[in-house]
Amino acid sequence: MKVEIMSSGFGGQGALTIAKFLTKAAMKEGKHVTWLPAYGPEMRGGTANATAVISDEEIASPIIGQSDILFALNQPSLDKFGPSVRPGGLMIVNSDMCPNPLGRDDVEVVNIPLNTLAKEIGNTKVLNMIAIGVVIEKRQIIKFETIVSDLTKFLEKKNPALLELNIKAIRKGMEFVK
């Protein structure tokens, strides 16, 4: 198995952390992983993106030309990276910020109002966890338990309330596509 992931959005939306959480969880599950951010002035408020590769075999190139999964958190990201999703791939599109669909019918598209759902949970920061929930349900690249245990380690003492919200957000994402 080898999955190539592109995650893109405005700086601060959490595109980089989506890819990073998936990478970290996959590593914990014994997979080979790479995570590569686009860096530079872009990270300050412009568009930010990161690629992640998760594989059973050693990963040669961390640079990807096409992706199997795309997280498009805003319209420019969808326009830029949508066309290079492989046929049969998965596009998770933040419908709150992507008014114009690409109209591809050879990929699986999940249109999900990430901002609205995050607001319902009570914290826009958990937008990225909702997106991760979608991918956990749709593609078996990482397990729900792995990411929860990672979050628990990270937040249990520091901010238990936020931990609770994050877990709720993952569940919400999973339920949305069930």
Binding site: T23, V33, T34, L36, P37, Y39, P62
Partner: peptide, 10 residues
């Protein structure tokens, strides 16, 4: 190079 510097791997 910048890629090796910025990339995360185990």
């Amino acid at each position: 190079d910048g890629l090796l510097g910025q990339m995360m791997e185990p």
